[in-house]
Write a protein that binds this DNA or RNA. Structure first.
Length: 684
RNA sequence: GGCGAGGUAGCUCAGUUGGUUAGAGCGCAGCACUCAUAAUGCUGAGGUCGGGAGUUCGAGCCUCCCCCUCGCUACCA
């Protein structure tokens, strides 16, 4: 860990702009990054805060087809939407760049060429599905077909969602391109792989040894898990048109893998920022005393802790991240947040509903960031945080003081001496906030800021200036002078967390030049006889009705989704390819009775059955453990495909297959005769 | 099943290298106050720290076993 950095390079994960982004993303990366950066700026540090849109990759091409427009139109639309949302929420990027910019293409290509010239890549030729009509190679996710395992008719190329089996696209029966609806063809293709495993010893030293202490447990644990699991060569190129061209003569139709180009986006964005501001970009990426910090969500840990560091290491000129303080996930009202499932609060949606309350959301999210474990956002909680903390503690304190000062002294600050005790307290709080933020404990920092307002409320209640103004005018003047100093300190302390309110407070105080962090801890920030501005309400209460509307909206969305799913699910699987009677005749289906059933060791979905087929009793392994309890199915009569070639599953020889019917809810039912039939009876 | 992260007050969460009666905010109850957006301050109730065993003078923190949640991963002929 770098202790006294000369400059800070802070990045927040580049949002993938195939859609809008929700408040979970905000809580995961952007908000903590912003707080960190704002504090550093107040401290006068040399810091650059980098972000931008990640605009390459197949999902964007697909989204374009869906929306019947060009990929460029898709990224323009969402780039602007997301960028504006961030701006409205006060996320203070120094640059919000985009990976479609020419400077980024050049930078990413330079990296690739550098690796290529050093001979770091392995070239490999593989066979992949190609959509001839669309003219593109299909990523696994864009091939659908019948699952060879469970027969589900719309399994994805990488996984069947019905039975959960992970697949290779070539396993699928009747593969179909989801892009054109046509049958794709297998075609040979060459790609450049980075052999990550070669860097394992280096990675172990840098990450597992050098950062054993200063990285968060979740980040360290996940990284370790990946390294221990064995690193694999990873293709750094893809087939496609939408992306950065592979800068080689024999690479027509090849683009850089988005995960190769995206993190380089941090670098190219810094270059652009430097150009715009007449600065040099290299110190922020190449000087040893620069502190590089990547703020990301937990889904991004592996890329920022393993792949990108390896890339930086391969290049050789670059510094490595000092920390990757990844957050966990933010749940919503007890369930996972998901834009596609419409169980989310999208940033732009929040801003439409609460256009004048960016700080309320910032405060609520910051007070409950998923720093150590997944945390929970509820609208009720949002309302409570706003009403009983922002309004009742912070806003109310400031309002009390300003109203009293206007009432008693016509808004003129009493001319008193600064209080040593108060100064001591303020310095303590300042240090606590400093320490918390430096260690990425944002909730704690926020709480310490609020404690300053609590202290102010306490002071007022104890000294009762509204009483002493008549009985002991000196005391009233002193306490109001002190409280005004507290407000001045608060206006700086709260800036990293609730920047819009910070500005408002300084405006109310009638402060001309904004304070900075060095001013915090002084009990004489506002001089005697200074004329205060007029008090306005900092925050307003949010009524139940408003919150109820939001909650209803959420559940309405859910009903809609459930309804649409209910419509889709009963769709009957299309008929499979025609077979002959001879094909059917090959199958020997028999009636049998389950005699015993037990779970297979070390497998969640498997049951080992012994089935009496009349002429023999045999062992059959079936993937039904999720649907039936062993004790419930003993004695059941079932249909068995008896002459299926035996196969060893999890070390157990399985001879045959139990026939099951799957209903629209995915539930399995045994196929059996209505009356009890002799074991071994032939079904035909 | 394996790996990773968690399971602490009604709710949302802290608990740094094991050390005296386990914390915060919100909520709740009582009291005080009335300058303030019925806001604030004080006091209090409330926890066998997922369960069990062990190491230790001493364990929420360490070891082992089990249960539950989340993420990645394996098994489904």
């Amino acid at each position: 860990m770098i202790n006294t950095p000369k400059q800070y390079t802070v990045t927040a994960a580049l949002p993938y702009v195939n859609g809008s982004k929700h408040i979970g993303h905000l809580a995961g990366a952007y908000l903590p990054a912003d707080v960190y950066v704002r504090l550093k700026r107040l401290q006068g540090k040399d810091v650059v805060f980098i972000c931008g849109s990640d605009e390459h990759g197949t999902p964007i091409t697909i989204q374009a087809i869906k929306e019947n427009c060009t990929p460029q139109q898709v990224i323009d639309k969402y780039h602007n939407l997301v960028k504006e949302s961030f701006a409205s929420l006060g996320i203070s990027f120094d640059i919000y760049h985009r990976t479609s910019a020419p400077i980024h293409h050049e930078t990413a290509q330079e990296f690739f060429t550098d690796f290529y010239n050093k001979g770091l890549f392995d070239e490999k030729v593989t066979r992949q599905y190609y959509d001839e009509e669309a003219g593109l190679f299909l990523a696994d996710r864009y091939i659908k077909g019948t699952c060879p395992n469970c027969g589900h008719d719309s399994a994805y190329g990488d996984q069947c969602e019905k039975c959960g089996k992970s697949l290779d696209p070539t396993d699928l029966i009747n593969p179909v391109s989801t892009v054109s609806g046509n049958k794709p063809v297998l075609k040979e293709t060459k790609h450049w792989y980075l052999p990550l495993q070669k860097y394992e010893p280096w990675l172990r030293k840098w990450l597992l040894e050098d950062h054993a202490k200063d990285w968060k447990a979740n980040v360290y644990g996940q990284s370790k898990s990946w390294i221990d699991g064995g690193l694999q060569p990873r293709a750094m190129t893809r087939d496609g048109e939408w992306g950065i061209k592979v800068p080689l003569p024999d690479a027509e139709g090849k683009v850089l893998y988005v995960w190769f180009d995206a993190p380089i986006g941090y670098i190219s964005a810094t270059k652009q920022w430097a150009l715009d501001n007449n600065k040099a970009w290299e110190p922020y990426w190449k000087e040893a005393d620069t502190k590089l910090i990547h703020f990301v969500g937990k889904d991004n840990i592996v890329f920022h802790c393993i792949i990108f560091p390896i890339m930086l290491h391969c290049h050789g000129d670059y510094i490595l991240p000092d920390n990757v303080p990844a957050n966990e996930f933010l749940n919503l009202e007890g369930d996972k947040m998901s834009t596609s499932r419409k169980w989310s609060v999208e940033m732009h949606q929040y801003l439409e509903d609460f256009p004048d309350k960016p700080d309320a959301l910032r405060y609520c999210l910051l007070s409950n960031l998923p720093e150590n474990k997944d945390s929970e956002f509820t609208w009720k909680d949002f309302q409570t945080k706003n009403n009983s903390e922002l309004v009742a503690i912070l806003g109310n304190f400031i309002n009390r003081v300003l109203v009293l000062t206007h009432k008693f002294y016509a808004g003129k600050v009493p001319d008193k001496k600064p209080c040593d005790e108060l100064q001591q307290f303020l310095i303590e709080q300042k240090n606590k906030i400093d320490e918390a933020i430096d260690n990425y404990r944002f909730r704690e920092g926020l709480a310490e800021m609020m404690n300053v307002a609590r202290h102010g409320n306490k002071l007022l209640t104890e000294k009762e200036p509204w009483k002493t103004f008549k009985t002991d005018p000196e005391s009233a003047a002193v306490v109001l002078y002190d409280c005004i100093q507290i407000i001045a300190n608060l206006s700086v302390m709260c800036e990293p967390f609730i920047p819009f309110s910070a500005v408002k407070i300084q405006h109310m105080l009638g402060v001309q030049t904004p304070f900075n962090w060095a001013d915090v801890g002084r009990a004489d920030l506002i001089p005697g006889n200074h004329q205060l501005g007029s008090p306005t309400l900092l925050f307003e209460k949010i009524e139940d009705e408003i919150i109820d509307i939001e909650i209803q909206k959420l559940y309405a969305n859910k009903l809609e989704i459930v309804a649409s799913e209910a419509v889709v699910v009963p769709s009957v699987a299309p008929q499979k390819a025609e077979i002959t009677f001879d094909d059917f005749e090959k199958m020997d289906i028999r009636v049998g009775t389950i005699l015993t059933a037990e779970k297979v060791e070390k497998a969640d979905k498997l049951l080992k059955l012994s089935v009496d087929l009349g002429f023999e009793t045999r062992a059959i392994v079936s993937g039904i453990a999720a649907h039936f309890k062993p004790e419930d199915i003993i004695g059941q009569q079932v249909s068995v495909l008896a002459n299926l070639a035996p196969r060893k599953i999890r070390g157990v020889e399985s001879k045959g297959m139990i026939l099951l019917a799957e209903d629209e809810t995915g539930k399995l039912h045994f196929v059996k005769t209505k009356e009890i039939t002799g074991n071994g009876s032939i079904i035909r």
